[in-house]
């Protein structure tokens, strides 16, 4: 590090700048073309003519009944929160018990949960439909939340138990001698210490819930009044993939809010991920 010369620094900065621009070009194409008529998108995909820029197509996409933007966002946000509440809420006590009970039974239990990490969620959807149907939860948001949470539990529990194992046992033993109950020790002493790893789990689960398409598509089905962002975009765009007057504005509406959230929360999101990577 001491030997970095100005030329090498300049080269490095230049390379990173070029790569960053390459990453951003698709965004630029999407934004510019969302405001142009089809003919112009075809003639000059990168340029724009201030005179013919129009918000008509954005307005049309906003009003498209296949993809109700605001409701789509509300449903997706609800999924993100509800899945995290269930997955984290269920994983904390389980991970605590497993980490603090060094018997073969609980070691096996950890293995039992961890095995789930190798089961791709969308692949077991077909049989999961039969289970949800038996429970009467098929086609409902709670059914969807339970299914998505169950696929998050293995990883969440795995990183939680690893983290709790690193917390000094003397902490909860001291509290236990003071007469505190197990639940109280867990939620008032251990849980606050788990903040970094909970943040990591929350972010990872949130990203997977946010981006999930197959689960809401199959579990909610056409009968449901609920659309997530992904199923809404699919309904609005899939039969018109080359009608760019529909594609670009719809995609723009779908990504702008999440990108804003990302820009605002960027430090926390990426920081949370790397915190988990170091400790987990």
């Amino acid at each position: 590090m001491t030997r970095t010369t100005p030329i090498r620094t300049a080269f490095r900065v230049g390379l990173v700048a070029v790569l960053s621009i390459a990453m951003l070009v698709p965004m630029y194409i999407m934004v510019v073309n969302a405001f142009k008529p089809q003919q112009e998108i075809l003639l000059s995909p990168l340029g724009f003519d201030l005179a013919t820029l129009t918000t008509d197509h954005i307005a049309a996409a906003w009003q498209n009944t296949s993809f109700p933007v605001v409701e789509g966002y509300a449903v997706t946000l609800f999924l993100v929160l509800a899945c995290n509440v269930v997955a984290i809420g269920a994983s904390v006590p389980a991970a605590y018990t497993i980490a603090r009970t060094p018997t073969p039974l609980f070691r096996f239990l950890l293995f039992f949960f961890v095995a789930g990490m190798f089961v791709p969620a969308q692949i077991i959807l077909v049989p999961a439909i039969f289970v949800l149907k038996a429970l009467g939860l098929m086609g409902t948001l709670p059914g969807l939340v339970l299914f998505m949470s169950s696929t998050m539990i293995p990883f969440t529990l795995f990183i939680f138990s690893g983290y709790i194992r690193m917390l000094p046992r003397s902490l909860d033993e001291a509290a236990s001698i003071d007469g505190a109950g197990r639940q109280r020790i867990l939620w008032t002493i251990v849980f606050p210490l788990m903040r970094p790893i909970v943040a990591t789990a929350f972010i990872l689960n949130a990203l997977s819930a946010w981006n999930d398409f197959v689960s809401p598509q199959l579990i909610l089905g056409p009968g449901s009044q609920f659309r997530t962002i992904t199923t809404g975009v699919y309904a609005a765009v899939s039969t018109y993939t080359t009608n760019y007057e529909i594609v670009f504005p719809t995609l723009l509406l779908a990504v702008v809010p999440i990108l804003l959230i990302f820009v605002l929360m960027q430090r926390h999101i990426m920081g949370g991920l790397s915190a988990g990577a170091v400790k987990g």
């Binding site: 509440v85 269930v86 809420g89 939860l137 098929m138 409902t140 948001l141 709670p142 009968g223 609920f226």
Partner: peptide
């Protein structure tokens, strides 16, 4: 542990469309 699950199950019947 079960609170979120129960809460979900409770609102399950209303959200149903089947």
């Amino acid at each position: 542990g079960m609170t979120p699950v129960l809460a979900l199950a409770a609102c399950g019947s209303e959200g149903g469309s089947g």
